[in-house]
Amino acid sequence: MTVDLSTSTAGLVLKNPVLTASGCAGTGPELAPFLDLTEVGAFVTPSISLDPREGDPAPRVAGAVSGLLHSWETPGSGISGFLSTELPWLARRGVVTVASVTGSSLQQYGELARRLSATPGVSGVEVDLAARNIESGGRMFGADPYHAAKATAAVRRDTTAGRPVLAKLIPDVHHLVDVARAVVDAGADGVVLIDGPRGMAIDPVTLRPSLGTGTGRLCGPAVRPLVVRCVWEVRQALPAVPIVAVGGIHSGAHAFEMLLAGADAVQVGSATLSEPSAPARVVRELAEELRRRGIDRVGDVVGRAHDLEGATP
């Protein structure tokens, strides 16, 4: 039996529902020795800022039990570097590319969307809502429905019609569903759940925070149950909203669990740090999970866990 893994998520046409995750796959060439990027559903770029940036002070990554802490801002060459160097590399190879954008003001989100709009080779845009808004005292855009919606609307307004916009939500909020509803009302075609929750570790040798920024996002298997919960809640409240799950997905079984909870697609992030070819393995294993159960279309399992409860249609 052949399993049909193809899917259309939030308007993104994907050969399979396994994407890379922003900041966990480099700009493309780094993974090339290990992974054919055309074998995954889509490649998600590191968050692209308007100007080149050096990133947060080191250390930017620290280990944690079953995961890692990653600081907020990664270095990057800005939108010009992306358009002149990184995107052409991906486009030449026919990699389905989702551009992640990050800004410190609404004006920057709009500008990024405009610069990307004229560009072929970008299949979708992901809005980084863990970015800090200098217009609201450095709070993260995703911290409340109002600012999350504003940033999303700023990107949507200047993004080519028909090109999907996905909002990547942060989980450190009282009501994630309210934020999800707000970004969808603001024009998001789907939501990415979730950016890593804020975590922290203290180095026992230096007696100082392990990360240069103090706090960072907690990623990896440690957060997977949190992701399942977030996917579950948003799916239940907003059954029509496409969801991409991310956080600790290291195997086909993990991807399968996310689909059951209501995700239409998944991103494989931290797994690539120790196993650069992990996304391709997850694709193979997911197909096997479905084949074993006699399921021939991946779409058939999306949200199935809800059906058993009779919670959603």
Binding site: G23, C24, A25, G26, E30, L31, V61, P75, L273, P276
Partner: peptide, 11 residues
């Protein structure tokens, strides 16, 4: 942290 250049963790 990753050795391959994907994580941007090292100096």
């Amino acid at each position: 942290p990753c050795g391959t250049g994907i994580c941007h963790g090292c100096v």
